[in-house]
Amino acid sequence: MKNECLIDGQIGMFDLPVIDVIKTKEISIENEENIKSDKLYSIVKLYSESCSRIVKTLSGALLVEFDDKTLYFNSAGINEFELTKDVAIMPGEEIIIANSDKEINEMQKEKLEALKVTEYIKRKGDANLIIPGEKTMVINPKGWVLEYDQKPIYHQNEIFNIGVSIEIQTIENRNTDVAVNMNEIEFKVNDDVNIEYEGIKSIGKVVRIYKNGETLNIKWEGKQTAFYYKNVSKVR
């Protein structure tokens, strides 16, 4: 029925056409994660044969390394930028694909020997040596010893044991065996010490002592690494 109160040209509210409300399709968080996972899986599948390695970072991004560069794909599967080859990775980051290995150098071997550890982890595709423990220790290619709270991700066949021969000297003191200080000098945290690193002599400070006093973690000039106790002397 036409509204008699309307002026010519006006439309009454009952004469308006019915408009259907179109509801937008909601994507659940779970579906979003599946979409991201599908994209990342397709990236791994695409480059699995041609790359040197693929690493999944702590943020969920992928590092796809080739002979001359590394492609960075964010957690959504978007290639954001390029990095150089041999990007340093952390022990808690997962090596998904490793088509070639990275060799360790003599400096790393010497540092590993100085730390007197019984086992270490060498992951295929990783240039770092990883020493598991309460805190994860990493010896990088520069010979630096770094500590991480994160637990390493690795395969069982990447664990290597070292035959360590530890000489223990004892003396009899009131019918009790007492270990002799092998260094004759007892180091303490915050001691100033003389060191030599890569042929350069410096003075550093002891920040941590472990391995029965045989390994000293020393900080100096913005650097920090481990030294075998026989290679360090107190500042007089």
Rank of each mutant, 00 (worst) to 15 (best):
I29K: 13
M13C: 13
P17D: 05
K45T: 10
K142R: 15
I78P: 04
D38N: 15
L16W: 01
I104V: 02
M107H: 00
I104N: 00
E80S: 07
K135Y: 12
E134L: 06
Y47K: 03
I104Y: 01
K111S: 06
N181C: 15
V189N: 05
L6T: 05
G125T: 07
C51H: 01
N231M: 12
E93R: 03
A61R: 08
T84L: 08
K122R: 12
S42H: 13
P141L: 01
G60Q: 02
I27R: 04
I95K: 05
K39Q: 10
E49A: 11
L46R: 14
D177T: 13
E82V: 06
T70C: 01
V207F: 15
E184A: 07
K135N: 06
E119S: 13
P17G: 00
V64F: 11
I168F: 12
I159E: 02
K25S: 12
R53Y: 04
Q169H: 13
D8I: 14
I203Y: 08
Q150S: 15
K109P: 04
N74H: 01
Y148H: 08
D149Q: 12
L40T: 03
E134M: 08
N128E: 04
E32I: 15
G125K: 10
L46K: 14
L129E: 01
K234N: 13
F73K: 05
L16M: 08
L146M: 13
V189M: 04
E167D: 07
V117C: 14
I95L: 04
I162F: 11
I22S: 03
E147P: 03
K69F: 03
D191K: 02
V117F: 15
Y154T: 12
I43T: 11
A114P: 02
K219V: 11
